[in-house]
Design a protein around this nucleic acid. Sequence first.
DNA 1: GATGAATGAGATTTCATTCAT
DNA 2: TATGAATGAAATCTCATTCAT
Lengths: 214, 214, 214, 214
Amino acid sequence: MGISERRERDRERRKNEIIDAAENIFFRNGFENSSVEKVAEAAELSKATLYLYFKSKEELYYAVCQRAEGMLFEKVDKAIKKATDTSTKIRAFLNAFVEFQQKNKDHFDALFYLQTHPFKLDPDNELMIENRRRDQIYINHWTELIDQGKKEGLIRDSLDPIRTVLLIWMQLSGLLKIASVWQCELHKELGFSRDELLDEYYNILFNGIKRDKQ
Amino acid sequence: MGISERRERDRERRKNEIIDAAENIFFRNGFENSSVEKVAEAAELSKATLYLYFKSKEELYYAVCQRAEGMLFEKVDKAIKKATDTSTKIRAFLNAFVEFQQKNKDHFDALFYLQTHPFKLDPDNELMIENRRRDQIYINHWTELIDQGKKEGLIRDSLDPIRTVLLIWMQLSGLLKIASVWQCELHKELGFSRDELLDEYYNILFNGIKRDKQ
Amino acid sequence: MGISERRERDRERRKNEIIDAAENIFFRNGFENSSVEKVAEAAELSKATLYLYFKSKEELYYAVCQRAEGMLFEKVDKAIKKATDTSTKIRAFLNAFVEFQQKNKDHFDALFYLQTHPFKLDPDNELMIENRRRDQIYINHWTELIDQGKKEGLIRDSLDPIRTVLLIWMQLSGLLKIASVWQCELHKELGFSRDELLDEYYNILFNGIKRDKQ
Amino acid sequence: MGISERRERDRERRKNEIIDAAENIFFRNGFENSSVEKVAEAAELSKATLYLYFKSKEELYYAVCQRAEGMLFEKVDKAIKKATDTSTKIRAFLNAFVEFQQKNKDHFDALFYLQTHPFKLDPDNELMIENRRRDQIYINHWTELIDQGKKEGLIRDSLDPIRTVLLIWMQLSGLLKIASVWQCELHKELGFSRDELLDEYYNILFNGIKRDKQ
DNA sequence: GATGAATGAGATTTCATTCAT
DNA sequence: TATGAATGAAATCTCATTCAT
């Protein structure tokens, strides 16, 4: 039995090496301007070998994104766990996302690209199924946070937790991405920084979800 | 005297025909998967002729986006003008954006693509300069709306108008785009529609920007 | 009669302006990498207008070369006339060529390109006929120099004047051109300059053509 | 063990087949007017495959030239070895060059084109490095000939061997090339042949380099 | 499992030249 | 005379993927 397990382990390790290489290439040039050739070179493998591990360029990119998402989720997790009360937990959730975009710009961008482009892997692709499961877990995880906030009277009762969480995810994604692309113009022509923008965002959001004073 | 003017008019018309064709192609396949060749075919012109009107594929795409932005701005304009009081004007502004994404999905997507990809035209490109001027006008236009809302006691005084407007633009863009890509999953796996999501968004946003009761 | 003459003069002037522009472009990029478009731009004319004055890109280049040859011939002429005795005249002839390559590198290169590429203008092309006549004049001119040298006992009697002149032209052309392209390598890897090479050339040549001591 | 060696051999053979095809095309149309497409067709390969063996059109042309130079060097070598005394060796060296231009006009032209056009391959290109080494060997080889001539009192002591060899190479290149392009005119308008011209050249050159009688 | 070889299809852009006006 | 518009043909190079070994 040990032998097939070791094989599986070897295969996983090799896959990871390929993803390492793919990150290098995809992060530098984006999906469209990267070539499988370059990834193979970076991985010190032949192109044909890549195809033994990933069925297509798309699947390879998907794997890179999956890892990126893993990183993000982990960071958010840690941040939430460190916080003690619900209010700071929610703030920590946002902060972690924001920080991820700043410190792991490439990973964030890859994730954003995946979310805004209809990638067509076949729907019973292993990676996708696994990913979807994980997504679900995290969404639940975060909605519990909202629920808790509602119980504690921090958040308006009328808000639907799932929608609220997705809403935050989507709008914050857009905000961070566009602000990042416009960085230069924001500074030069409008005269304020990403962080000032984010302050205003927090301001409005928290006001928007908090329970009305009674 | 009439001769050069007619030429200019012909040229403008031809340019517009090309943009028509380009919309067809770019909207169907996206920027990366469209080719100048296909656009030329659709315009019933030779590739070389296209290059007499647009210096590069990028510039052509930019022209398509410029037109799309024009449409969006016009719609927002009209919607605001129809409304009578400031509160409905602000709502109308958002509604027009949302409706644009729904009724002119392709135009919206093109615009979104442009905003989330660092396009490099040379910075003294005519189209770009003109566009930037228009952008500025509209931003001013909308910030006045926020200012008015503040004067009328609808909106918190502490909000910076420009930041607020940009914030709304960015987060709403992200929200609409990602929701549109996930459309299917939202429905099937989470069981609610884009419109329900948007309701929640409005809900939170208006609560977030309104002046606290005194 | 004045009217058609003025027209002719205008046409000549315009042609010269075009050649000015063509020099700019051809000298910068060479024949193959220059485009009629660029020349037209530089001449502030439309492409179509260029074709009113020159039948093809080739003919235009030929005109540029003709002018260059004119310059060279003039320089050689002047140098020879300045010299007083036959021996220095011959030296002056060579010096003028060498100096032309150095001070008018672009003109020299154009001339060299023309000579080493079988350009096909139709053989009764005006420019060509005129040029050929001029060539003949100059060849005669120079062969007289050799003849004179022979009479004065400076040059071996057995040498054929025409062959000798052509020989010098051809070998010196090759020498100057290749030395110019290799300039860098000559210096770095072999450690001597163009001028040292030319000294040796003069040395060998003059020894080669002079009459044996009796 | 044999497997990778056979692969290497196959690859070399294929490369040579491509160079065969490239010769066909380049020789017929020259570098500028040849296309990689045509070479690929001639080689009965796809364009893409060509690029697996040669990184660019330039590199391909360079390979063609390298082979041509090899041929020339070999011929010169053989000619020199056949000759018994230094004087005839030197003559044989020239003769071999002249004969090469006559019998392998295309190869000569390719070589000449390379030498008179600043080709930009990256300087650590394998082909270039190898070529440069070979060039150096041959230059040394030939300078030894001059040195020997000096020792034997055939050649003037004052001549620098390297410069002399390069000089001969350059001037003879120019002479042969221009005479070849003018072939027709030489005959018709001046009434003598390439060979008569060359006789004069030899005449002058040998007189020019020989030791003065004492 | 690993890979070198191969490729069809296609990408963007350029060019010399013509012609109706 | 002058020109804007138009184009067919071509150029170099790239890419995702497959397959025999």
